[in-house]
């Protein structure tokens, strides 16, 4: 392979990772829509489509391994491939979380908690993920830091939403006389909140890997 081909492969890897992230963000938005509208068909679409993300992940993982093995990259190229390798793992896990959200659509009654705006938390989280991928796309260090800072807001929103669920549980005295439907709702709502919070954490991981990729700086990792 010529050096030109190698450079083109690097650029293609970046484009493929961005394409994967587009698909993942779309799935996430669909899952949120399904949750909001109780659209089980849409939720099913998200769930059954997860294997496509898994296949894409394996394909890109293979591309990264080939580049490492055959080109033995160093310096900026090495950091780019290493960061991409980690980012596709985050994206694959976000897709799994979108699948979880799709499953909750079938099992939970969203109307029990009118004060919790899952759509708002979800939209903020997807926006954050898209901002992280934009930082990766354009080697934008400032944007990567912005993503990390935004995660605190997502964490706050999720914490407050969890409090609403727990308070409601206590106030309805369901602890004493729980019924299955209520427990399902409580469990699914808490899992929904937790999964969205995790999407935010993965977005921070992507921002952290971007910072490492551009500046060899591991400040945001962990």
């Amino acid at each position: 392979m010529s050096r030109n081909d190698y450079q083109q492969q690097l650029e293609r890897l970046r484009e493929d990772v961005l394409e994967m992230s587009d698909v993942v963000c779309l799935r996430l938005r669909k899952a949120l829509e399904a949750l909001e509208t109780k659209d089980e068909a849409l939720a099913e679409d998200v769930i059954t489509g997860d294997h496509e993300i898994n296949e894409l992940y394996l394909e890109l993982e293979g591309d990264c391994i080939d580049l490492l093995a055959l080109q033995q990259p160093v310096a900026g190229d090495l950091r780019f491939i290493a960061a991409s390798f980690k980012i596709i793992t985050d994206l694959e896990r976000i897709a799994d979380l979108a699948t979880n959200l799709g499953k909750y659509t079938r099992w939970a009654d969203r109307d029990r908690y009118p004060d919790i705006d899952i759509r708002h938390i979800g939209t903020e989280t997807v926006d954050m993920l898209e901002a992280a991928m934009a930082a990766y796309a354009s080697d934008d260090v400032d944007a990567a830091y912005d993503v990390a800072a935004k995660d605190e807001r997502i964490d706050d929103l999720c914490e407050r939403a969890s409090e609403v669920v727990v308070r409601d549980l206590l106030e309805t005295e369901a602890v004493i006389a729980p019924d299955d439907a209520l427990l399902d709702d409580v469990e699914r709502m808490l899992l929904t909140i937790r999964d969205l919070e995790r999407v935010g954490d993965h977005a921070v991981n992507i921002a952290a890997r971007t910072l490492y990729m551009v500046e060899n700086d591991d400040e945001l990792i962990f």
Binding site: R3, Y6, Q7, P73, V74, A75, G76, D77, L78, R79, N216
Partner: peptide, 17 residues
């Protein structure tokens, strides 16, 4: 040197550019 060289000329050399 191989992960994060200080000089662009070194980066270009070791990455084959």
């Amino acid at each position: 040197v191989f992960e994060n060289p200080d000089h662009d000329r070194v980066e270009d050399y070791i990455t084959g550019k």
